[in-house]
């Protein structure tokens, strides 16, 4: 069955004032919000800018603020998003430079992601050294994903939702941010190289590192992949403080 979905969308072009526009989009009742966003482009305005790719929460490309909260619209059913509301409200992620409409500039974000040495973070792709993981490193004989301390971060799809949710990111681009710090945490767990590990911990311990986090845990709450960047930041702090205490007593 097709349904009519009222949607209020953030519109912006460089040099013009940001504003909202309202549309009605017809979608099947089992559609997701990304279908409605595509409908705005297909039915109303071919100049409407938005990003999407995989439609199943593995690319992180389509992340937006839906009804005031960061979501991946490709996995949110329209009926759920509309429950108790007159219309959908779709805005771009916060704390990124705006490019146009729902599209934000993620270049700076990816540069920080690269700092951990984990440009590509999913288990099946590559390790810190650039060598692909052997199948036996990833999966047990029975074919289940091996339990490792860093399994969770491998879920990061670099969607930028945690950056939009983080109140410290709102204040400054200098902060490394939840995703990059979670990446650094994972890299410290995977590397066998002491110097590499020390360099990564120094990065996390810098003025714009883990100490700028104010423990709002919005990153962990909003992460669509349960990566828990907030927990990673706290674990980095424990490791950094532990090392300092050891060093203080001459054991480091």
């Amino acid at each position: 069955m097709a349904i009519q979905v009222p949607i209020k969308v953030f519109r912006y072009r460089p040099g013009t004032a940001p504003h909202f526009e309202r549309y009605q989009v017809t979608v099947p009742d089992d559609a997701t919000v990304i279908d409605v966003i595509e409908g705005v482009w297909a039915e109303h305005d071919r100049n409407f800018m938005f990003r999407h790719a995989c439609h199943h929460a593995s690319c992180g490309t389509c992340a937006v603020r839906l009804n005031g909260y960061e979501r991946l619209p490709c996995i949110v059913p329209v009926t759920e998003a509309l429950a108790g509301r007159q219309e959908l409200v779709v805005e771009p992620l916060r704390n990124f430079p705006l490019v146009g409409d729902l599209v934000v500039d993620v270049a700076g974000f990816f540069q920080k992601q690269a700092a951990s040495g984990l440009v590509i973070t999913r288990a099946a792709e590559a390790t810190l050294s650039g060598q692909p993981f052997a199948h036996s490193e990833l999966f047990s004989q029975a074919g289940a994903l091996e339990e490792r301390a860093y399994n969770r971060f491998e879920n990061c799809i670099e969607c930028g939702i945690c950056i939009s949710a983080c109140p410290t990111m709102a204040a400054t681009d200098k902060f490394w941010g939840p995703a990059a710090l979670a990446g650094i945490r994972r890299a410290t767990l995977t590397t066998g190289d002491c110097q590499e590990k020390a360099a990564l911990l120094a990065l996390a311990d810098s003025e714009q590192g883990v100490w700028r986090c104010h423990s709002a845990f919005e990153c962990t709450e909003s992460c669509p992949q349960d990566v828990d960047p907030g927990g990673a930041i706290m674990s980095l702090r424990r490791e950094i403080v532990g090392r300092k205490v050891k060093h203080l007593f001459g054991a480091g």
């Binding site: 540069q111 920080k112 690269a114 700092a115 951990s116 040495g117 590499e196 360099a199 990564l200 120094a202 990065l203 311990d205 810098s206 003025e207 714009q208 590192g209 100490w211 702090r237 950094i240 403080v241 300092k244």
Partner: peptide, 17 residues
């Protein structure tokens, strides 16, 4: 370009921890 290199970048320590 301008990618931060973990090995060469020396982030400002400041008061940090």
């Amino acid at each position: 370009e301008n990618t931060v290199d973990t090995h060469t970048a020396r982030p400002r320590a400041g008061l940090s921890s």
